[in-house]
């Protein structure tokens, strides 16, 4: 069924393939932030589950509670492993004309934005990230959804450099 792609489009010779490029890893300290965020969420979820169990305890057989709790613990442990394993997949790439970010082991995602489409660039530091001297770069395009391109876990120095660089790339016509 599938028609050969190169028949329908005349591709320019030696089109740069993003797949072949070497991505820069994010700061290893960012893994700590991921763990902290994850634990906060885990504790909140665990506590609410506990409260919920205490309420319905009388009406549900005990083994069901144990199974559910085991399931919860299993899922949490599994996600922890996934966070660790997928961490090395995270990376960003700044080429001559565009910026890209990739992430995800189970569900791999790669996003690119050409410089000439950037509307503005934001540098964000969450409370925890501030302590670790890390920052997030957010790149907006026209009509962008919030998940357009976000690079978390950058050392603050590198993040400001990237922001300066990208802001310089925005064509004067586009600047506010």
């Amino acid at each position: 069924m599938t028609t050969d792609f190169s028949n329908s489009v005349i591709l320019p010779e030696n089109l740069p393939a993003i797949e072949a490029a070497e991505f820069n890893p994010v700061d290893p300290k960012f893994l700590k932030i991921l763990y902290i965020n994850y634990s906060i969420m885990g504790v909140i979820l665990g506590l609410s589950l506990l409260v919920f169990f205490l309420i319905i305890k009388a009406e549900v057989p005990e083994f069901i509670l144990w199974i559910s709790f085991g399931l919860f613990a299993g899922i949490m442990a599994w996600s922890l492993i996934i966070i660790r394993l997928s961490f090395s997949k995270r990376g960003y790439l700044i080429r001559e004309k565009d910026i890209a970010y990739q992430r995800g082991l189970i569900r791999y995602k790669l996003t690119s934005i050409p410089f000439n489409r950037i509307q503005h660039v934001e540098l964000i530091q969450t409370f925890i990230a501030k302590r670790m001297n890390l920052a997030t770069i957010k790149v907006y395009t026209a009509g962008s959804s919030s998940d357009d391109l976000e690079i978390p876990g950058l050392p603050l120095g590198a993040a400001s450099q990237i922001r300066e660089f990208l802001t310089g790339k925005i064509s004067p016509d586009e600047q506010d």
Binding site: G104, L105, I106, R107, Y108, K109, L110, T111, S112, I113, P114, R117, T141, A142, G143, S144, D148, L149
Partner: peptide, 11 residues
């Protein structure tokens, strides 16, 4: 009119 591109693939 392309603004951004996203490639995604599940394991």
């Amino acid at each position: 009119k392309v603004q951004h591109l996203k490639f995604s693939q599940s394991l």
